[in-house]
Structure formats: structure tokens, C-alpha cells
Amino acid sequence: MRLLVNSGFFTRSIKGQENQEAEEEEEEEAYALTPSSKLVLKENVTTLSPFVLAMLDPALVNSWQFLGDWFRAGSELTPFGEAHGMGFWDYCDQNAEYGNMFNEGMASDSRLMSLVLMDYAPIFEGLGSLVNVGGGTGTMARIISEAFPHMSCTVFDLPHVVANLPDSSNLIYVGGDMFQSIPSADAILIKASNRFSLLKDLQYFILKWILHDWNDDECVSILKRCKEAITSNGKKGKVIVIDVVIDEEKDEQGIIKTKLLFDALMMVLLTGKERNKKEWEKLFLDAGFSRYKIAASFGMKSVIEIYP
């Protein structure tokens, strides 16, 4: 308990308790939850318990032990690949139990979007359509579609990820490969013309915690596909990136260590990394975008708007 108190997971207080027989007051320790520990309560709608379980699974934890050998050998595989003989995404595909745990972990993180919408609703207002690229099982897109029922929302992910997921009145699932092409909202409208009304002029593409999984060249490729989808029909639009921005000089919330730990985690599991402002800017410009702005920040993540 001392360790958990020191790490900020619980608070500790001393309360006096009267002892009738000894006619003296005894001290009693009391512990209470902090904002950090409340986040993993299973009964909370926005619980991060599945995310924590996915990150602490032995398959991930054991991979750290291969970091030194991987670094010295200069292997093309990641430390995770050295540990399991396959890449992280292949592991998720071939191990259904962990794959489901990982999907639920990502979904639990996306449920926090309900809190983001309350504070940053103007970012999403006025949208005619939104395509959630790499949207998984659609938790975040579902929250946005319910908050903005006038909007046409699409979850775009690999075919086996979105297979058999139920559509709703303003939300559909489309399978594909974001490295090959990303359908424009107009193309999606044609595919689901019996469900969606006519789109407004603004089309948005959103990537939440996607780009940090990939190296710079892969990120540029994904962003180029997004830009092609926006500009292919002559309408206006932008890409919303929700991801980590590292700023070691400005750490008002005291979360830089967590961001840097996730940076190391990306090195162990995948080919990606967490990026600072200059690194993000280079990606956007290399992908052909003209400008960007960091519109908001919440917790570990920032909302970045980029424009063709």
C-alpha cells in the first residue's frame, strides 16, 4: 500500500478511533481512490481497465526482455517480433484471445471520447461526413455519430476487423487497406445511398492513435491516401489526427514520462514512435498538406487538424 500511495494510485489518511476499554484514541489508516485509480474501476463507463490488462499481458511484457539483444543485433524485426517470431498485428490475428483483449482495450480508450466531445465539440460541429480511418470496431465513431446525428460516419479498417459489425442510421463499416486507398465520403455515400442523406461540403477524416504505430514513410503513405480522398471530389475537408505530441519543455500536467514510456513501447512492439511538433510537421508537409494546427490537448493526446 505504501508503494501504491507513493505512486499516486491511492491517498492515505490517519483517522482517530476511540478505544473504550483503554480510554484512549487509536490511530487508524484510511485509503481512498485518486483520479488515476478511478479510471480502472470496472463499473465506470469510461473505465480503462481493459486497456491496462492489454498493456500488461505477458505477450507484451516479455517482449521488453528482448530489447537489448534486438538493439545489439540490429535486427529488422521488432523486439516483439524477436520474442514471438511474428509481428504484433500478425500475433493479434493469430491469437484470438489476445486480439479480442487488445480490441477491447482500444475501445475503452475510445470511450473517453465522450468526455472530449463535451469540451471540444466545435472541432466536430459542421461536419457533413467523417471517415474514421483505422477505426477498429467503431467505438469512437459510434460516440461521435450519436452526438452529431446529422453527420454521416464511416469506420474504415481491415475487412476482417469490420466484418459483420452492425450499421446504424448514420454509421456504416467499410473494409479496405489504408495503405492502398481510402474511399472518399462521396464513394461511401454511393455505396450506402439508401441510408445516408446528401453530404454537406465538409468532409473530415480522423486518425486516432493510428500514426504512432507506423514509421515515418508509412505515416506519409497513409496521410497521402487521406489527402487523395479529400481532394478527389473537389470538396473541402481536413484530417483530424488524435495522437501524442511530445513537448519536453512544457509539461504542465506531469505526463511527459508516460509519453516517453509509450515512445519506448512503440519501439518494442511496432515500427512507430511518439513525435514532437517538428516531427509531426515534417510528416504533414511530406504528405503534401499545406498547413496544420494543434487545436486542443487532453491528457496524453492532442487534436491536430491538417489541411490540404
Rank of each mutant, 00 (worst) to 15 (best):
I242V: 13
N19V: 03
H150Y: 05
P159L: 06
F205L: 15
G254P: 06
V174I: 14
K42C: 15
P149K: 06
A192R: 06
I256V: 13
V5W: 01
D217M: 12
T11N: 12
E252R: 10
T46P: 08
D69Y: 10
A83Y: 04
F88G: 02
E248N: 03
A147F: 09
I206D: 09
N164T: 11
K250D: 08
D109C: 12
I14T: 15
C153R: 03
A147I: 08
K224T: 12
L3H: 08
D157H: 03
I144E: 06
W64T: 08
V161I: 13
E97P: 01
L270Y: 00
S108C: 08
A22Q: 14
L198T: 11
F51M: 09
V161K: 04
N6E: 15
L127S: 02
A54Q: 00
E252P: 04
A32M: 12
R142N: 08
L41R: 14
A73C: 07
L158G: 01
D243T: 03
V45C: 14
D119C: 14
R2L: 14
L171C: 12
P149M: 06
E23V: 13
E23C: 15
I294S: 01
P183T: 09
D286V: 00
H150G: 07
Q20C: 02
L48S: 13
P50A: 01
L165A: 13
I206E: 07
G138Q: 03
G254K: 12
F71D: 07
K38P: 02
S152E: 09
G8C: 13
R72K: 15
K278T: 14
I246G: 04
V133Q: 07
E24W: 05
M1H: 08
F102A: 07
M101C: 01
K15M: 03
F205A: 14
E29F: 02
T139H: 06
E29I: 13
E28R: 00
S63W: 04
E26G: 01
P308T: 06
N100A: 11
W70F: 09
G85H: 07
M86R: 13
F66Y: 13
W280D: 05
G176L: 11
Y204V: 14
W214V: 00
S145W: 00
A96N: 03
F10P: 06
Y204L: 10
D69S: 12
G74K: 03
L112H: 07
D247K: 03
L260D: 00
I306S: 04
A121P: 10
S221M: 07
V40M: 08
L223W: 02
C92Y: 04
K200N: 15
G105Q: 00
Y98M: 00
V220W: 11
E76F: 11
V40P: 04
A96T: 13
H160I: 09
Q20H: 09
E248M: 09
K236N: 10
G254N: 06
E279R: 00
H84C: 05
N132R: 06
